[in-house]
Simulated scan of single mutants.
Amino acid sequence: MSRQRLIAFLAALAAVVGLVILVPMASTASAAGCAGAWSPSSVYTGGMTASYNSHNWLAKWWTQGETPGAAEVWSDQGACTGGSGGTGGTTGGGGTGCSYPAWVAGRSYVTGDIVQYTNGLDYIATHDNPGYDPTISTWYWSPYTCSGSGGTTGGGTNPPAGGFVVSEAQFNQMFPGRNSFYTYGGLTAALGSYPGFATTGSDTVKKQEAAAFLANVSHETGGLVYIVEQNTANYSHYCDYSQPYGCPAGQSAYYGRGPIQLSWNFNYKAAGDSLGIDLLDNPNLVQTDPAVAWKTGLWYWNTQSGPGTMTPHNAMVNGAGFGETIRSINGSIECNGGNPAEVQDRVNAYLNFTSILGVPAGNNLSC
């Protein structure tokens, strides 16, 4: 019997027996709007949403690269329309999944705040400032690329990490006793200075590089506990007066500071020139500004070969292995039998961190 004839029959029956028949009507409810498109390269934490194949999905816990609908981490929130609703893809500059507040001149901002400037591009505050122009005051602002994750959409002290492969929860797990100076926000604010870091190669390689950097940092700082070099007797040794610029901050001013323990006047000069910060005259910035401290660590990691033959970044992305990063940092002081206990301490940290990130450690762990 057709639906029309069934309805007519029920109506006639109702008239005979005095019943009220409620005839089901076709649903007129519309699907929800689509969240930002899921991106396999983006990091999602519990409670964040993304759209995939015209459905919205809710992340139950931290995830990256696990496809909605094919992984238990995602909870289907139902069909969606409009917006992206597609099959993923990262967007930038205030695009899908990212809607940062407009920059306002004269409004106070804190490190980590993200704004959209009048040119349509996004910027992240690398230092607290009273509303300086992001395109002029580059000391206080850095360009920021949206992760497209559809998560947090405003500024604050804990913004999205721009797709960083280490979540804040994992960072805290790696460094349970860290000094409060070494903030996760300071680290993620520094990432924009070296966009190739932990974003090159496969997802496994990206996580291996992040783990390698943080393992070496852990060794240099006693688990992110020490901000400055503890052996004060060495402080006066780090001034190379053969350099034409000398040591304007004083002979004892260039001791080890920060996550990679930046030392020597020529390294402060080179790092400062690269980062656009006068560290030769202001070395204390490395021990007072978390973002500057992290930037100096990333500067060495991404640009310096040290006593090795390649940068630690290249060692990890080109398959030379974790051992080569040790060589680039301390060379024969530790490698080639120089101090096997120190090497093993670094390797142990790396194995721990790769385990936390869920990736294999790879080959060539020692030097």
Score class of each variant (00 low, 15 high):
170 Q>M: 10
204 T>H: 04
177 G>P: 02
191 L>K: 10
183 T>F: 01
201 G>M: 02
207 K>D: 03
193 S>K: 13
224 L>V: 00
206 K>F: 04
176 P>A: 08
171 F>H: 10
186 G>R: 06
200 T>Y: 14
216 N>A: 10
184 Y>P: 00
181 F>G: 09
203 D>R: 10
196 G>M: 10
196 G>S: 15
224 L>K: 05
210 A>W: 10
203 D>Y: 09
200 T>R: 02
206 K>A: 04
183 T>A: 08
193 S>N: 07
205 V>C: 02
214 L>C: 08
188 T>H: 01
189 A>F: 00
205 V>R: 07
219 H>Q: 15
197 F>D: 01
195 P>I: 01
182 Y>W: 01
207 K>R: 15
171 F>S: 08
219 H>E: 12
210 A>G: 10
217 V>W: 07
185 G>I: 00
209 E>D: 08
218 S>L: 06
213 F>E: 07
192 G>S: 15
193 S>A: 14
198 A>N: 13
222 G>S: 14
179 N>T: 05
193 S>I: 00
177 G>V: 12
173 Q>F: 03
191 L>Y: 01
204 T>S: 10
170 Q>G: 09
196 G>I: 00
221 T>A: 09
177 G>F: 13
208 Q>W: 11
182 Y>P: 00
201 G>F: 09
210 A>M: 13
192 G>A: 15
199 T>A: 14
209 E>W: 04
199 T>P: 05
181 F>P: 00
206 K>C: 08
181 F>N: 04
173 Q>S: 13
172 N>F: 03
203 D>I: 11
213 F>S: 10
176 P>W: 13
213 F>W: 11
184 Y>C: 02
203 D>S: 14
210 A>V: 08
194 Y>C: 03
176 P>M: 11
176 P>Q: 13
220 E>M: 11
214 L>N: 09
221 T>G: 03
170 Q>T: 15
218 S>I: 05
211 A>T: 13
200 T>C: 01
213 F>V: 06
180 S>Q: 11
209 E>G: 03
224 L>A: 05
217 V>G: 11
212 A>R: 12
178 R>A: 10
176 P>H: 05
174 M>Q: 03
181 F>C: 09
198 A>R: 07
220 E>H: 09
209 E>H: 08
212 A>V: 15
199 T>N: 15
170 Q>E: 14
216 N>W: 04
223 G>C: 02
200 T>D: 03
